[in-house]
């Protein structure tokens, strides 16, 4: 069963810049898919189209079988949550508590349950002790965690992370990756949009975009090793795989070392 079905999607900014050209892809229920690509490859445009922040000019998007249109966009947003790159641009509440509550109020969740969910998800992202704090008191990584708690609390079936880790320090990035893993374990459909291979390595499938077109879509293992495809889209192999690639032609390199490098790359 597909959670997201995209067919022949095209989008052009201002009638000039073609951001997406005839893109078709699907994401299965409970699957974790990475959309990889260079800056300007159309990744974020794709994310904005899926949540109805941009209007498709050609092609269709279906979420859980429902075609996205002006009529259905509000229902679809109840199913698809999105976390953006810049934590400063998505903090809408006066306090952490208000911020997490925002989405729930829109869903008209009863007050009792709302309080319960806010506290539960604040704990999940280790921000419980900050519930009454204002955004100025938080670091970028902490704000990003609050944004994620707000999305988690809405219990959407799909969560899109649009370069959500790219502005965080290593500690912040690792935390968000751990939330993504937990979501997958909980059966939530996850779409990560990134050019960070350490984020991509954990997903089930990778779609590589270049200049608005799909270059390759395959199991993560196969894409991760594909130096040629990755480099075409301004990406690079994870270093252990680059080493593996560099040593490949040496016959004497033992299999154990090769396997070890592969495992090392999976650990991000």
């Amino acid at each position: 069963m597909n959670m997201i079905d995209i067919e022949n999607l095209s989008f052009t900014y201002g009638g000039k810049v073609e951001a997406l050209k005839n893109v078709s892809l699907c994401v299965k229920k409970g699957e974790w898919v990475t959309i990889l690509g260079h800056n300007g490859s159309g990744k974020s445009t794709l994310a904005k189209l899926i949540v109805g922040l941009l209007k498709p000019q050609k092609g269709t998007i279906r979420v859980d079988g429902v075609e996205l249109s002006e009529r259905t966009v509000h229902d679809i947003r109840k199913k698809v949550g999105i976390v953006f790159q810049n934590p400063d641009n998505q903090f809408v509440g006066v306090t952490v508590r208000d911020d997490i509550a925002f989405g729930l109020e829109n869903l008209r969740i009863p007050r009792e349950e709302m309080i319960e969910r806010i506290e539960h998800y604040a704990k999940r992202v280790d921000m419980y002790s900050y519930l009454n704090k204002e955004p100025q008191a938080l670091s970028g990584g902490q704000k990003q965690r609050v944004a994620i708690a707000g999305i988690l609390a809405m219990r959407t079936e799909v969560i899109i992370f649009d370069e959500a880790t790219s502005m965080l320090d290593p500690d912040g990035r690792k935390r968000i990756l751990s939330y993504m893993r937990k979501l997958r374990d909980d059966g939530v459909t996850v779409v990560t949009i990134t050019h960070d291979m350490r984020e991509a390595v954990q997903s089930d499938r990778i779609v590589v975009l270049k200049d608005g077109e799909i270059l390759k879509a395959d199991k993560s293992e196969d894409v991760l090793k594909d130096k040629e495809t990755l480099e075409k889209s301004n990406l690079e192999l994870l270093l252990p795989l680059e080493v593996l690639h560099g040593l490949e032609h040496k016959k004497s390199t033992n299999e154990e070392i090769k396997e070890f490098l592969w495992q090392l790359s999976l650990n991000g």
Binding site: G37, H38, N39, Q85, E163, S166, M167, H195, M197, E231, S233, N234, L235, E236
Partner: peptide, 13 residues
Amino acid sequence: DEPTSGLDPMGRN
């Protein structure tokens, strides 16, 4: 101040 954050790997390099 963080000149390469958000850039793709080749762009960063």
